[in-house]
Nucleic acid binder design. Structure first.
Lengths: 171, 171
DNA sequence: TTGGAAAGTCAACAAGGCTGACATAAACTG
DNA sequence: CAGTTTATGTCAGCCTTGTTGACTTTCCAA
């Protein structure tokens, strides 16, 4: 079913989704959704001695085993001192393994231990469950739009950094 | 155009957007996008003596003038002690006005002063600019999907709370 | 062999969460 | 009217997670 082209001027009706009110709605949705997004893993972490920072580290180590401390630093966007505190705990608790780099022996290559993988899976599954439910209620087309807009919100420099890491580019 | 049924089990091909890998992509997008989402106002706040917590308070007071401390508490999902610290600064600095409720004189009705509205507008515009750019690059259909999925991610109790406040329902 | 990069560590600090305890005023209720 | 509940504010102390600055150790590469 095709609607006839609008009689409004070109900057009119098609751009109603760009009004300040529409933008404000999106902003508030981001705020509330991010809270929901982190709520389930946060509840699990509360019982253990860990916080959201530990979850983030576990998450990215899980899916990029062998990444260096520096790469993780760039992904997380925190200082090495801040990450170090979290990482030290995870290594002490035998959730993360740190081995000397084989090409560059200054580097530390991070990976999860069995226990680390188990905790990560538990946290991840809690988070995925909510996303899975949201995705299936919203449907594939909505999900595509969701991802499209999120990608556009990310800073270009960050997007570059991400794709560099995904390609395994070791510049 | 009908493709013949996939040789996969019935839950197969239509649900590819629900695979763990697709979900993980969405999760990482949420993480990176949220950072982009807050980056611009954060930069402005850095120069002033304020943080993200002040921005959030200003934002919700701006668009719901006359809301009570309790309502703001529920929206933000923090303790009154935490909010109070932020609110006290904003009131001292004459960015937020607090007047005694007319119906219930125990309540404090919050609103922005001229200076508060000016700062809020500055922060808000920085954030909207990024959202506006993302929206226009992604297009209206993507934006609709974006909002749809975000709504689904929010916890039902939170959704209820929000719509109660939007209706001005004073239960 | 030496300069510099990568990594780790220590110290000090700040923002912004939290809990618990308590005070005050106003509203509600029996 | 007395007693209770509600809304708000405040004090004190704690935790997590971020920051900067200074310094050391390791070790690659010119």
């Amino acid at each position: 079913m095709h609607r006839p082209r609008s009689p409004m001027p070109s900057t009119g009706e098609q751009l109603l989704f760009l009004t300040d009110d529409q933008l404000r709605q999106g902003i508030e949705l981001m705020f509330f959704a991010y809270r929901g997004f982190t709520a389930d893993p946060d509840r699990i972490l509360d019982d253990l001695a860990y916080g959201r920072a530990h979850h983030r580290a576990l998450h990215f180590i899980a899916h990029r085993p062998g990444l260096t401390v520096n790469e993780l630093l760039e992904i997380l966007g925190v200082t090495k001192q801040s990450l170090n505190r979290v990482l030290r705990q995870l290594i002490e608790d035998d959730l993360v393994a740190s081995r000397v780099g084989d090409v560059d022996r200054r580097q530390r290559l991070l990976s999860l231990t069995e226990a680390g993988a188990a905790l990560e899976a538990r946290l991840s599954e809690a988070q995925r469950a909510r996303m899975r439910a949201a995705y299936s209620r919203a449907g594939p087309d909505a999900v595509q739009g969701f991802k499209r807009v999120l990608e556009e919100i990310i800073s270009p420099q960050m997007r570059e950094k991400i794709s560099r890491l995904e390609e395994g580019d070791t510049r």
